[in-house]
Design a protein around this nucleic acid. Structure first.
Length: 496
RNA sequence: GGUAACGUGGCCGAGUGGCUAGGCUCAGCUCUGCAAAAGCUGCUACAGCGGUUCGAAUCCGCUCGUUACCUCCA
């Protein structure tokens, strides 16, 4: 029997048993990347975390619709009127079309996520493709009297909203504190309150990313796309909203405000789930700090902090070995350990394949069976407790120890019942491959392996061991490889 | 300044009132032509000081230290 999945809900600040609104359906929305730069380890953590949640929900037989957006409209660099759009800035810099920049980084993001074995979301909406929906939502908020228009821009009226709702309920902000501590930024003259945020911004003449709206030619505000797109695809209230902890305020707080202030009149999602940050030497890895490490740099070992290249699966394992709500400290040494741990898990997978259930009679060892079943159960206990993959992996290693002992004959496979065997084998395989999403990465190089085989072939020929020669030829032929005995030497070719 | 976290052994990292986390590293043993893998054993812990308790790394208080959010950020 599996226990229920619990998730830590930022909205209530406690772990709650996950109950979908309309089981067996689950709607999940996760904030995806802003595609103006190469994906780094931080992007990977968020993606891997929610990919694992997605995978686990599916394994629990929920029918999940997973929506993860692509932000391609760009946010303002700062709050100023003359602030340049991030994507536009990059575009000017490189003399490219904004959409060309967007496509470029979107492609890289997709490639890197594939390599990390992150499943594609069911819907991946782009902000630029949902301008109409965003305009509609702004109009609703205006109709409800919680936004105002100034010079073609529309702002969300936070103080007015706060009279009836609680602005700050998600992040634990106190509006009075926010007011007394808000910084004076340029270009805030249009806002009635420094807490107000833009729903629509009128574009400056130089601004090339722009769309028509009832208020001006311009572009949607920072937080609106997620509200509009999550509603379109998941409804006015859905189950899970995920994202990085750094998005909690203001981004997600504003999403809730927008949702409440629109015709939704809801918090949008019932469970708000946030993954923690990756740190380097205890400091957050981030664009603004310039200490981020791109995934490509990790995969290729091309960074001053790295002594080696680290495969996508090593990165995935590294991320999963910590609980998603803890900070995870990056270091070369930690990655070295992760690589070995990952390999160990993969070797376990291979051992399972080599250990079939015996045909002959078995003499069950009740104690061993109980122990193994308990270890298998532990693997799920971790997952169910707020997706604690660290505990799941620890439990898998405990299970693996027994599996290896069976493999070595230190424990007798014949002392397992069929039921225990199936449970243990299925648990290990399903958790490692389907839920944790860890898969084997072939390390062998075909050319090198063939060179080795050909050297044996050559040796066999020289010693006139023709039975071996024939055997090698036959085996290779099965693989679609033919050996060519040339006057100039031995070579191989693909069978034509 | 406001708010919220965190401080676990050489490294990473779970846990949380009494029961071995786990991985990596290091030492030894089994195995072994050598080695590797695997198994077994061992090593160094819960920032400090008080308090609650039969019992605290786990709860409470204080001190010290670190970080995050408050500005785009996964």
């Amino acid at each position: 029997m599996q226990q229920k999945l619990s998730l830590y809900n930022t909205l209530t600040r406690k772990k709650e048993v996950f109950e979908p609104l309309h089981a067996p359906f689950v709607g999940m929305y996760v904030c995806g990347p802003t595609v103006y730069g190469e994906p780094h380890l931080g992007h990977a953590r968020s993606a891997v975390t929610f990919d694992t949640l997605y995978r686990y929900l599916r394994q629990l037989h929920y029918k999940v619709r997973y929506v993860r957006n692509i932000t391609d409209v760009g946010h303002l660099v700062n709050d100023a009127d003359e602030g340049e759009d991030k994507i536009q800035k990059k575009a000017k810099l490189e003399h490219l079309e904004p959409m060309e920049v967007v496509q470029h980084y979107t492609n890289i993001y997709h490639q890197d996520m594939d390599r990390l074995n992150v499943l594609s979301p069911d819907i991946e909406p782009r902000a630029s493709g949902h301008i109409i929906e965003q305009i509609e939502m702004i109009q609703e908020i205006l109709d409800n009297g919680l936004a105002y228009v100034v010079n073609g821009s529309v702002y969300f009226d936070v103080p007015a909203y706060h009279k009836e709702h609680n602005y700050g309920k998600l992040s634990g902000r106190v509006i009075e504190d926010l007011l007394s501590n808000s910084r004076t930024l340029d270009g805030q003259d249009e806002k009635r309150s420094p807490l107000d945020f833009a729903l629509w911004k009128k574009a400056a003449p130089s601004h090339i990313m722009r769309w028509p709206s009832p208020w001006s030619d311009g572009f949607p505000g920072w937080h609106l796309e997620c509200s509009a797109m999550s509603r379109k695809y998941l409804g006015t209230t859905f189950d899970i909203h995920g994202g990085g902890l750094d998005l909690m305020f203001p981004h997600h707080e504003c999403e809730i405000a927008q949702s409440q202030a629109s015709h939704n009149h809801s918090d949008a999602a019932r469970y708000w789930v946030h993954n923690n940050m990756i740190t380097v030497n205890g400091q957050k890895m981030g664009k603004s700090l310039g200490n981020f490490i791109n995934l490509r740099e990790l995969f290729e070992g091309n960074h001053e902090l790295l002594t080696d290249k680290y495969s996508p699966m090593t990165i995935r394992f590294f991320i999963l070995q910590a609980h998603y709500r803890s900070t995870l400290d990056f270091s070369n040494e930690a990655l070295q350990a992760a690589r070995k741990g990952y390999m160990k898990l993969m070797n376990g997978l291979r051992v399972l394949d080599k250990l079939p259930y015996p045909d002959e009679a078995v003499t069950p060892d009740e104690k061993l069976n109980d122990e193994l079943l308990k270890l298998a159960q532990d693997c799920y206990r971790g997952l169910n407790d707020d997706l604690n993959t660290a505990r799941t992996i620890a439990a898998l290693f405990n299970l693996l120890k027994k599996i290896n002992s069976l493999y070595l004959g230190q424990l007798a496979i014949g002392s397992l019942t069929r039921g225990t065997y199936d449970t243990v084998w299925n648990t290990y395989r399903e958790l490692v491959q389907e839920v944790l999403g860890l898969q084997e990465e072939p390390t062998a190089d075909l050319e090198n392996m063939l060179d080795l085989v050909l050297s044996f072939y050559k040796e066999a020929k020289e010693t006139k061991a023709y039975d071996k020669v024939d055997a090698i030829r036959a085996e290779l032929k099965k693989q679609g490889i033919v050996i060519k005995d040339l006057k100039t030497g031995i070579d191989w070719a693909y069978e034509e």
